[in-house]
Design a protein around this nucleic acid. Structure first.
Lengths: 116, 116
DNA sequence: GCCCATAGTGTCAAAAAGGATACCGTGATG
DNA sequence: CATCACGGTATCCTTTTTGACACTATGGGC
């Protein structure tokens, strides 16, 4: 998703719009959603979201971290170990995430219930 | 927002992800949100969302219509009159929209409560 | 006759997002 | 010695998205 508004507060700050700007990006919501269930390592996320490339995953994780939605913990071990988990702020998005999930389950059900 | 998954059902169909794919685009959520309050004409939407260009608004409205989220009614009058309103499907997104709004109100409150 | 409003469309070009691919260091494993 | 896994980076390229701007038809008002 393209940035809704480029971090300029006050301008277009429809709350809804600004919320969106934090969770845009092709994978952010999925990432957050996966993290709802608990801490995950980089490659665990990769495996959970096979379609994401490494670059994208890194990218999105950095943005989520920069927005304070997730926490990145690096363990100075030799096979690198990095864990991602939701911050309190990130966890507070749960209602949004769940609302989306439920809407999707209901309205895009298994058979891809077309509207058109 | 970039299409989450290109309408290919079954692939990556994380429900959450597919829900997103319908409401991506820089303005869709705002449009839907504005329409929650009732039918609006093209230029009314323009005025409510000043930052959107005509082309973008048209574009997003077409996609929303194609996805069955809004209804476009054209009155064959001479100063053209076109009204947009939410379809039942569109209205059913209300919980998602409201969850976003509330999250935004709470977490991006007036003073732009930074997380970082 | 000229300008306004409505609801667009079309074209062009820029910017942003995303994808593919190659590469890095290190310690363990075979 | 070669290879693997981990968690990335860097670079290049393509696609998608967005914006600017010009243009349209028509009827009414001045």
């Amino acid at each position: 998703m393209p940035r809704v508004s480029p971090r300029v507060p006050g301008v277009e700050g429809c709350a809804v719009e600004r919320t969106l700007s934090l969770i845009d990006g092709k994978w952010k919501i999925v990432i957050l959603y996966k993290l709802l269930r608990g801490t995950l390592r980089f490659n665990e996320l990769r495996r959970l979201i096979p379609a994401v490339t490494q670059r994208m995953l890194t990218h999105q994780l950095r943005e989520l971290e920069a927005d304070g939605l997730i926490i990145r913990t690096v363990y100075a071990q030799v096979p690198p170990r990095v864990e991602y988990s939701l911050s309190a702020r990130g966890r507070s998005l749960e209602p949004v995430l769940m609302a989306m999930k439920e809407w999707g389950d209901t309205n895009l059900s298994s058979q891809e219930a077309q509207a058109a």
